[in-house]
Amino acid sequence: MKEISLHILDLAQNSIRAGAGNVLIRIEEDSAADTFSVSLTDDGCGMGAEMAKSVQNPFVTTRTTRKVGLGIPLFKAGCENCAGTFTLESELGRGTRIAGTYQRSHIDRPPLGNIADTIAMLIAANPKLHLRYEHKLNGEEYALDTAEIQEILGEVPLDTPEVTAFIAEFIHSNESELESTEVQKS
């Protein structure tokens, strides 16, 4: 994957397929510690210990259309190739938390990429899902929460095209703002 935001879109598909009602996506960047961390937490069906271990290599899937699952191994390899780490915690019936860290300055670390489209498409295609996205960069942080948005929208659904466009722009502008805080300080 060319962008970390594409891994995020892909891993979120697993959560949706696992029947999650709530998904939390969090990015945490720390320039002093030189880390770029991504985590996805869901309350989907979860996996047993055996399964949680085996999905980390590219031969395990519960899908029927292809024999190997690729999403998790690709993400894991990406992190580990950038002097990072990967963890997967899961409990049957409770949910799953997947976390990966990259060395932020690593030459092979993919850019975050178009996270605005990732989040906007996830919400547009899954309007019933409660999704929260958080991005922290050093001391600054912002979040987008579909529960908050839905409260303002009332009976207007989250997959209304104008709302999707708003969400993409909202994230776009907040990401630029966040980035600029780092430039100012350096």
Partner: peptide
């Protein structure tokens, strides 16, 4: 910067 306030207008319109 964009804020959630704009959503109110979208709601009215929609």
């Amino acid at each position: 910067m964009k804020t959630l306030k704009e959503l109110e207008a979208i709601r009215q319109k929609t």
